[in-house]
Every structure is written in C-alpha cells, then in structure tokens.
Write a protein that binds this DNA or RNA. Structure first.
Length: 415
DNA sequence: TCTGGGGTCCTTACCCTG
DNA sequence: TCTGCAGGGTAAGGACCC
C-alpha cells in the first residue's frame, strides 16, 4: 500500500477543528485482519480480500478489505453469502497470532502517548490524552501523530475520533473511516449526533432498532425528544436510560485501563452436527482443558461454570452451576460441565455447538479452592500445572488428555 | 442466507433469609 | 406463628459488541 493511498484523508474533517476539551481519542484500525494480511501479500493490494472461514465451511467473515466491502461483504456475514457476493475475492484463513502481535505493537505505541489506554479489542482502544497535551500538542495533533506512527511502524492504517466523551469519540472514528480523523467539539455534539440513525448508538442492534422503529424513532434526535419514561417502558429501565443519556451526548465513563476480566470461556461449532453423547463429552473435555489452562495461566479461579448448547436449529440454551468455592482445575470444570450436559437428558438431539464459560473470576492467590467430592487433596491441580509448563515449552499439543489424542484409523484397540 | 468465538450487560424468575 | 416485603444470590435467556 502506498503512502499516498493511505493518507488521502489526512486533514481533520467534519465539524471543525476547535478541539479544546476533546481529550478522549478512539483509535480504530481499518479492516484490521485484512490489512495485516496485505502486509505480507502486497500483490493483493487493491483487490477484494476476505479474512474468515475456518475449516468446516461454517465460518463467517472476520474482516474484509474496502474493495470487498464495496461488493456488499461485511464482517459477521456467513462465508457462503460472502462468496456469492464477491466470487473473485481472495479468501484467507485467519492468523490470530499475527493479529495479536501487530496489536501488541499498536498498544505499546499508544502507551508511549499516554498511560491511560483502554483496549476494547485487538484493534481499537480509547486514549485519555489530557496529560499529554503539553508534551505533544493539541488533540488533533496527537491524533495525527498516532495515525502517522501506526502507519510507519505497522504498515496499516487507522481512523481516529476526537471528542470530549468516549461514546462520541467512538462514533467519530466510525464516521471518519477509512484512514481519517474526525474532531467533534463539545459544543457541536448535539448537531453531530441528532441526524444520525438510531443504529449508530452503542447498544442499539437489530432487535432494538426494530422496537424503536415501531415507536416511530429513526434518528438519535427522535430518541432525544422522546420522554424517558416512554423509552423505559419500551426497552427496560437500564436500556431506556442508557439510550436517552447517549442521545444527549451524556457519557460519564472514564477511560479506565486494566479492567479485570469477568469471565473466561471457550466454545466450538462442529463441522457437522453431532448427536453422540460420547463425542460431546470429548469436546467438553477439550474445552474444559482450554478454559482451565487459561485460568491457570492468568492466575485466576472462578466460581460459576456455565454450559452452552446450541442445537441444529440454532436455538441455544445455557445451564450453570455455582460451586461452593472457586475452581481452576480442568477435571473439575469437565466434571461440572458434563454433569450439566447429562442432566439435560437429550436423546440424540442434533447439536451444533457446545461451550464452557467460567464466571465469578478472582485472583487465584490467597483463594481457598473448592475440593470436589472424592478428589485427592493434592495431585490433580499440581499435575495440571506441570502439564501447563510442558506445553509452554513444547507446544500446546505436546501433552493432551488421553481421550483427545487422535488415533490412526483402525487403531481403536489401543484407545 | 444461514449464521464464529470471545466477551459484557440486562432482564426476569425463583428461592431463601431476615 | 403467620404474612408481607425487601434484598441478595442464583439461574436462564437474550441482545449486543468486536
């Protein structure tokens, strides 16, 4: 990608450049996964490229270049549909390790600007730059500095929203995409917000948009002029208040770095629906293994185990159990999830996905752990910690539960 | 059309306790 | 002892975000 291509909208755009008081930046990488892939495949520049898929043909679009987007492709779209819309698009399976590495570089760059960085995902973050103004200049100048450094250091482009609140900064970065910067001065927030469609508000998805449409509310301005009580009756107390506040540009949330995780989970959609309980048990063991390893690697324990089951018709149920004490041992996670699954009493129902999630996280240090009925007082956890160490050194596949080791065809006797 | 995987937050219902 | 109520914890489901 040439410099001239990516810098085409390098001047601040939109409502003006009076950026006084606009100390919140929202920085969002453009078509992140796709642009990371283009770095190593420059021959694909200017072509429709889609990152997504996965092995079983049941994947969705994770990211698409703007050339693919122009053909109607967007993220979260089923791959089968994306292929129909853009039959000539180059499809690349995701390489999460590469994205994580670029993300670390970008976040580290942000931290060189300000310590107040709140990552939202791999490819976006809020920055509070109030403390950096004297050193680095105006908010707009800092936004431009970030855009230019991201490109120079990572060879990808990003968009920056500059405002006095997180919510407006995020909207501004979205409106400036791709490869732009938009400043929304505090006194022009209402003018900026009210013409936008309701779907622009954080928390309004497909379902809520339909509900709002039934009330005849199509723009943010419509919501602002609707009595709070009407919104709360239609959408519930919290959502009604939330949308009403946002519609007037009120968002008191601070940029808060280092928010602790509230849950850790893993789930798997099968290539083909499964109706065999034994096979489901094996997948549950694999997921428990992943979740347990993540808990231990982050030195956390959790109290509630949640099982998720999605059936062939896409209906989804969850079942959960709160333990009397926190756990982080794979075997305990598996036993609990399996008991929840068995209690469903399914008779060869066709299952599309299973997942395990652990909630109620707390630091492992100093926590009295739950001892499962019949479990040895010592041993299991220590063994799993030893396995974690071996995997850290020799790879995640170096040690696995015996029943997860794939046998060559015809070798069932050794199972 | 046919829907991943990782999360967060909200609502509702129910049970228990004081 | 019974009743009503408030509040907390748990469970389940749903909407939403990236």
């Amino acid at each position: 990608m040439s410099r001239s291509q990516v810098r085409r909208s390098s001047r601040p755009t939109g409502l003006g450049v009076d950026d006084g008081g606009c100390t919140i930046l929202h920085v969002d990488m453009d078509a992140f996964y796709a642009l990371v892939e283009l770095r190593s495949r420059p021959e694909l520049q200017g072509m429709p490229v889609i990152v997504g898929g996965g092995g079983g043909g049941r994947g969705v679009v994770l990211s698409a270049t703007y050339e693919a987007r122009a053909m109607g492709v967007h993220s979260a779209m089923p791959m089968s549909r994306a292929r129909r819309l853009a039959p000539d698009a180059v499809i690349i399976p995701p390489d999460h390790r590469a994205y994580a590495e670029v993300s670390r570089g970008v976040m580290s760059l942000f931290h060189s600007i300000t310590p107040l960085v709140e990552p939202l995902s791999l490819d976006e973050a809020f920055l509070d730059i109030a403390g950096a103004l004297r050193r680095l200049g105006s908010p707009t100048a800092i936004g431009e500095l970030i855009r230019s450094r991201v490109f120079d250091e990572q060879r990808i482009t990003c968009s920056v929203g500059v405002a006095s609140t997180k919510f407006v900064a995020k909207l501004a970065s979205t409106r400036s995409k791709p490869d732009g910067i938009l400043v929304v001065p505090a006194e022009q927030v209402i003018e900026f917000l009210h013409p936008l469609p309701v779907g622009a508000l954080w928390g309004v998805g497909e379902k809520t948009e339909v509900q709002l449409d039934r009330l005849g509310l199509r723009t943010v301005g419509d919501i602002a002029s609707t009595p709070l009580s009407t919104l709360q009756r239609a959408l519930g107390q919290a959502t009604g208040r939330h949308l009403h506040e946002l519609s007037w540009g009120r968002d008191a949330r601070r940029v808060s770095p280092g928010e602790p995780e509230k849950s850790i989970g893993a789930e798997e959609t099968f290539d083909d629906d499964i109706d065999d309980a034994e096979a489901i048990h094996a997948h549950l063991l694999k997921l428990a293994d992943q979740v347990g390893a993540r808990l231990r690697s982050t030195a956390q324990v959790g109290r509630t185990v949640q099982l998720k089951v999605r059936f062939a018709d896409f209906t989804t149920i969850t079942r959960s159990k709160t333990m009397s004490g926190p756990i982080d041992v794979t075997q305990d996670l598996y036993d609990t999830a399996r008991a929840l699954f068995d209690a469903l009493g399914l008779q060869r129902a066709r299952i599309r996905l299973v997942g395990i999630r652990v909630e109620g996280l707390q630091p492992a240090e100093g926590t009295a752990r739950q001892l499962m009925l019949g479990a040895p007082e010592q041993g299991r956890r220590e063994a799993e910690i030893a396995v974690d160490a071996i995997r850290a050194r020799f790879g995640s596949q170096s040690v696995r539960p015996a029943r997860l080791v794939e046998l060559p065809p015809g070798d069932e006797d050794h199972r």
